[in-house]
Nucleic acid binder design. Structure first.
Length: 418
DNA sequence: CAGTGCGCACCGT
DNA sequence: ACGGTGCGCACTG
């Protein structure tokens, strides 16, 4: 309850700071929220962290300092639609992150709704779906997962967050007299990244990414922290080599992730996708986790080889990989037979069970409630998934980018080709 | 003094 | 050229 409220407050604050041309940093956000709503800075910080984890708010390292962005309003710099080829390749992953924030010029993909929609979505999602617990669950999952061996990158981002020490005395701006808020974790990390600003110290590829948009923030997940601008520099240097002993190398996150994603990495695309990595990682993580619980892998899309290829190409949860590559062909084929046939023939129940199996049981309910069958699914646009189902933005994005879009694409490819 | 408005420089696309 | 960002300064209550 209060959470959604905080969400609004915080997003509002960020927006207004931005419109005022003031940097939406922790200090200002906390202060403004306190002024406007009387909320404790600590609480604000805590909520902010949550929002960050949910990707409702993006923590960014810009021009050497930490900034927060209203994810719903962030627009991907006109990533001019890359060629279809590229786009296709990066597909899911990329789009997942971009389109959301983009202007919606994605080649495939429905244009995305405006920010407002998203924003609304976000809050709405929370309210409707509520389940703070869910959220918590997600978070915790992420956190717990963090350490998972498989994907250091993924955790990187989340790892930090979970640790979140709200009470810790954090000072984003180094010395902040004001509210002593404290989400140390995130902040610090970001600061670290800031290093990115120093191109000289970083490798060619990464620096750019970091410097440019700051999205890197995510990567910033490092625990270290910074306090003064001067230090940052040092950190920058430090970060480069050892990149945080913490096992995960936040700063290199991007690269790693991409690799993971399938090698398609597309380093060139780094700048444009900085967000992706984390995002993707998060997705994978979540998916994977969920999947664990449910043995039955997502079989569905599997209909055709095309799909498989696609899957491989794009990034997928470990499990999926194993499924596809690993010897579960049998299973896959079986499923293929059942479901794949043709999306057009999926019933509402099929769709629901698909998503349920895909790790989105709760959201599956929404599909069922909205009576989404195969045909409807094929007609769904991004905005439909994000706002029409009243599901939380996070899962909605994942569902759309990783499943709906993939299914649609696969379906159409299959039929068009033929 | 806090909050606000905004010119301007900077940067990436 | 264009758009996003935020510093720095002036203004306001």
């Amino acid at each position: 309850m209060s959470e959604s409220k905080y969400r609004e407050w915080i997003l509002d604050t960020i927006d207004s700071l931005r419109s005022r041309k003031a940097r939406p940093d922790l200090e200002r956000i906390c202060r403004m929220v306190r002024r406007r709503h009387g909320s404790e800075p600590d609480r604000t910080c805590a909520e902010l962290e949550k929002l960050i984890r949910e990707q409702t708010v993006l923590k960014v390292n810009y021009k050497g300092s930490i900034s927060y962005r209203n994810a719903a309003k962030v627009q991907r710099r006109s990533r001019k639609k890359d060629d279809v080829t590229t786009a296709a390749r990066r597909s899911a992953v990329e789009e997942a992150s971009h389109s959301d924030l983009s202007n919606g010029d994605s080649a495939f993909g429905p244009v995305d709704p405006d920010e407002e929609d998203l924003e609304a979505d976000t809050s709405m999602a929370m309210d409707t779906d509520s389940n703070a617990e869910e959220e918590g669950a997600d978070e915790s999952r992420d956190g717990q997962d963090g350490p998972s061996p498989g994907r250091p990158d993924a955790d990187a981002s989340m790892r930090c967050a979970p640790v979140r020490a709200i009470s810790a005395p954090c000072s984003p701006s180094g010395n902040r007299p004001g509210p002593g808020c404290g989400p140390v974790s995130g902040l610090d990390c970001a600061s670290l990244l800031k290093a990115g600003e120093r191109p000289s110290s970083l490798p060619p590829s990464s620096p750019r990414a970091l410097t440019n948009n700051d999205w890197a923030y995510h990567s910033a997940v490092c625990p270290t922290e910074r306090q003064h601008p001067g230090m940052q520099r040092d950190k920058a240097a430090a970060s480069k080599p050892a990149i945080h002993s913490p096992a995960t190398s936040p700063c290199t996150l991007n690269n790693n992730v991409k690799k993971e994603d399938g090698g398609q990495a597309v380093e060139s695309g780094l700048s444009s996708d900085q967000l992706v990595p984390d995002y993707a990682a998060g997705l994978q993580e979540e998916t994977r986790i969920v999947s664990d619980g449910r043995p039955q892998a997502l079989s569905l899309p599997s209909d055709n080889c095309t799909l498989k290829n696609k899957l491989n190409i794009t990034s997928f949860p470990a499990e999926e990989h194993s499924l596809l590559n690993g010897g579960k062909d049998n299973e896959v084929s079986v499923k293929k037979e059942n479901m794949s046939q043709n999306l057009m023939q999926w019933t509402v129940a099929d769709v629901a069970s698909y998503f349920s199996a895909a790790g989105f049981p709760e959201q599956a309910v929404a599909f069922r409630t909205q009576e989404i069958d195969g045909k409807s699914l094929l007609l769904m646009q991004r905005s439909d998934v994000l706002t029409g189902l009243s599901i939380r933005l996070g899962p909605a994005l994942k569902i759309y980018e990783r499943h709906v879009k993939v299914l649609q694409r696969t379906h159409f490819l299959e039929y068009e080709d033929v």
